[in-house]
Design a protein around this nucleic acid. Structure first.
Lengths: 199, 199
DNA sequence: CAATGATTGACAGTCACTGACACTTTCCGG
DNA sequence: CCGGAAAGTGTCAGTGACTGTCAATCATTG
């Protein structure tokens, strides 16, 4: 089935990565809105048209890594045991977000990305849109899981709980830095404060 | 100080309202992305340039009402007593959102707006961006309030709690309709489930 | 009536993004 | 080694959101 010719996919990813790094440097230097796609394409050494063959939009260059983190997060959540509470499963699914920060290189890149995103209202909105999409799919997953284990799940409450967990994640990443020694406890503190009474 | 020449402001609002109603009709009929600003301007009977004198962007036409609701919500929260818990203050601040739905005309408009927003990923993202902005300002307000009443407020936790409350609101407005008899209890149910242990 | 300031339309320009087409490079069986 | 399909690329033209500018109009006020 058409998903993933491995050899070519690798080189595609390599080109995407090259574009992303180049673009991020420009975004940091001049700002996101102030950098045109033409400039990025020229800096990479390709036509504007080709840029859009690797990224569907200018936003995508920055949000692509969020997408990938979302997939991992989704996979982690799916791997959690059915008996575990929704809240704890979510907290564990967030582990990679914290663990990533152990690598200084990753930490630096996250910092840069965060700076770019939070400096542009439009990008920030697009970012939140992605998170919302992710929350929807995680909610569905959890509702289905609850149904499997015999519970009668309340879809609205599950959705609210997932939203609450992401609110904790968002608050932590906003107020605490990218230092894992600070971020982790910070996330735990917020998630303890908001822990649902039952679920 | 420069805020609000009353006479002219009124007529400006009237024009904005006329544009908004016209545009919303077109959005429902053809979809948001498929409706061009030229079409809206022509339908209202003005130049495209003038359209942009009343709304900074096409998004703004739809999100303007969200903005106004946000201001009311902010004012309500500020009016709550300092002694009240953060969570209860937020729940009470949400009251106008529920009460608005008592008026069938308002309910219908909310339904239309909701339909338009949720049908366009870009608009939805912009909407979430506004909510995020609102959450920031409410968080600041609550942190300051907690400081006034002698508590030592934890800004991160407050931010997470505000985010959690909005997650409840969002979940309710997503899963329950615009019927106030359904929406209200739905909101209460989610907010009871997520009520923070202390705060 | 004349001066003034706000509102507007017309026009031109930028930038994100898309579709079409021609060209080249790569790959593969014969 | 060759011929042709497949994939990648550049060029060009076009759409649509948005902005700056300027001249004309309109209402207000002295």
């Amino acid at each position: 089935m058409g998903a993933g010719g491995s050899l070519r996919e690798v080189s595609r990813r390599a080109v995407q990565s090259r574009i992303a790094r180049t673009a991020e440097a420009l975004f940091v230097a001049k700002g996101f809105e102030e950098t045109t796609v033409d400039e990025i394409a020229a800096a990479v050494g390709m036509s504007q048209r080709s840029f859009f063959r690797y990224f569907a939009s200018k936003d995508e260059v920055v949000l692509d890594s969020v997408e990938r983190l979302g997939e991992e997060l989704s996979a982690r959540l799916e791997a959690r045991p059915c008996g575990e509470s929704v809240w704890d499963s979510l907290r564990r699914a967030f582990d990679p977000v914290v663990e990533r920060l152990a690598d200084p290189a990753v930490r630096e890149r996250d910092r840069v990305l965060h700076e770019i995103v939070s400096a542009s209202p439009r990008l920030l909105a697009a970012y939140l849109g992605r998170l919302d999409l992710l929350q929807r799919s995680l909610s569905e997953l959890l509702v289905e899981r609850a149904g499997r284990s015999g519970d009668e799940p309340d879809a609205v409450v599950v959705r609210a709980i997932v939203g609450g967990a992401f609110a904790c994640l968002q608050a932590a990443s906003l107020h605490c830095g990218t230092d894992p020694e600070v971020f982790g406890p910070c996330l735990d503190r917020t998630m303890e404060a908001l822990r649902p009474v039952a679920a």
